[in-house]
Amino acid sequence: MGVQIVVFAVCAIVALLGALGVVFARNPVHSALGLVATLFAIAVLFVNQNAQFLGVVQVIVYTGAIVVLILFVIMLLGVDTDEDLDTEPLLGQRWAAVIVALLLIGGIAGIFFVEGRGEAVTGQVAALAPIVPGIPSTDAQGNPTTAAGVDTFVRALPAEQQQAIGEQNITQIGEHLFTDYVFAFMITAALLTIAVIGAVLMARRPKRYEPMPELEDTSYEDVDELSTTGEVTG
């Protein structure tokens, strides 16, 4: 148990620092690196919560594919220049953002500790009552109330059993993915197809294009000039 708390503490700090880095870094590349730190920390937290499969997928898909794609686009477009964060684009926008953030944190974090109207109030997070029939409930101490459920709390198990759970994690995900969630799985096919079509459509160069030379042919100064002249499209 102690290990898990330490892992959580370290990863939480890394994740928060990374997230702040995303928002406050002037250079988009630094933002992307901050995002990598956060995503990696979250992957470790997944493993810490016995979601081993997701931990791996998180690293492969997010840090391995998505952030690399973002970095690739940053480099492709050459927009890795510092952004001026000192001037405020809209008056009061920054304060508004801070207020929104604080409200969100306060509001969301608050609800985990405030008592609801429901019965069996404990004020503890573990009192999220699984009221769906068949899923064991827990009492105020987080002890499962149903006899069968005593062992179902993963963390209460010895290490060797936990490893077995890790292997079962994938099996369980696979089974549920192709039974209960098979419809959702089918829809992702449509979703990914749309993403591909969209990318192709966006990458296409129309026949009669506005007077804009290929990026490779010109230096950026030239492009800037041309793009200002090309703005008359409106």
Binding site: A15, A19, L102, I108
Partner: peptide, 9 residues
């Protein structure tokens, strides 16, 4: 919640 709020901000 904090990560979400930071992202939203």
């Amino acid at each position: 919640a904090m990560l979400f709020a930071i992202g939203a901000a």
